[in-house]
């Protein structure tokens, strides 16, 4: 048992970082070096191309015009995902606390913010994730183009969200412990956090990180290329 937890918390993180970094660099590099003769511009293409691509990345305007219901769920899902990502920086470092304190938020205020905002985010993420999954199953046009990996990406995320929520609302966990763990990783002297739910959550997260460069989740990189191609003036 101990060696299993050591693998998850002491070995896997390094593996994940290496695979993730190598995979990402490889994907971006191959996309970048592939030539593109001719123009693919799709009109109307107002403003700057970069502005257009950034708008698509942050607000999904094309999806908004194409499928408003999906836009709502997808946007809330992704925005919350981004929020939760920020939240994880706080779980592992004191950075966010320092920033917030420097603008005058009290430590109690930060804790309150964390439990309301973070708690709400966890619930919203789970709900929208499940709704997206539901949609994928019941909606004919989406189901007929889905394969196992489309379900797997969502299921994996939902599992991570679910274990994360369980930790927040069920078993207790200490910020001090997770930060100590993160510090131990950076100094290459990994320690183990003895919290079963945290270990499961971390395991799933490592699987996700390793999986990302090979999966559809790479759309967060691909979108910059595909959108730039049609937005180019």
């Amino acid at each position: 048992m101990n060696s299993a937890s050591f693998f998850v918390l002491g070995v896997l993180p390094y593996l994940a970082v290496v695979v993730f970094a190598a995979g990402m660099i490889n994907r971006f590099y191959t996309w970048f070096k592939t030539p593109q003769p001719g123009k693919m511009t799709l009109f109307p293409a107002g403003g700057s191309a970069t502005g257009g691509v950034l708008a698509e990345t942050f607000f999904f305007p094309s999806l908004f015009r194409g499928d408003r219901v999906l836009w709502f769920f997808a946007w809330v899902f992704h925005a919350t995902l981004a929020l939760v990502f920020l939240g994880h920086i706080r779980v592992f470092t004191g950075l966010i606390d320092r920033v917030l304190m420097s603008i005058g938020v009290s430590p109690e205020g930060i804790d309150a913010m964390s439990s309301t905002l973070g708690g709400a985010a966890g619930v919203v993420l789970l709900a929208t994730g499940l709704l997206l999954l539901f949609r994928r199953i019941v909606q004919q046009r989406t189901r007929e183009i889905s394969n196992f990996s489309d379900f797997f990406a969502l299921l994996l995320l939902i599992a991570i969200i679910f274990t994360g929520d369980l930790m927040r609302f069920g078993t207790h966990f200490e910020l001090a412990e997770t930060r100590a763990w993160a510090r131990s990783l950076v100094t290459f002297s990994p320690i183990v956090v003895n919290n079963g739910m945290f270990q499961v959550h971390a395991l799933l997260a490592m699987v996700l990180i390793i999986y990302v460069p090979f999966s559809k989740i790479m759309h967060f990189g691909g979108i910059f290329f595909t959108q730039a191609l049609i937005k180019r003036r």
Binding site: W31, T34, Q36, H219, F225
Partner: peptide, 13 residues
């Protein structure tokens, strides 16, 4: 071309 290559790898279905 880049269009085709990225289209092979970025559809979110």
């Amino acid at each position: 071309p880049r269009v085709l290559k990225t289209y092979m790898e970025t559809c979110v279905k």
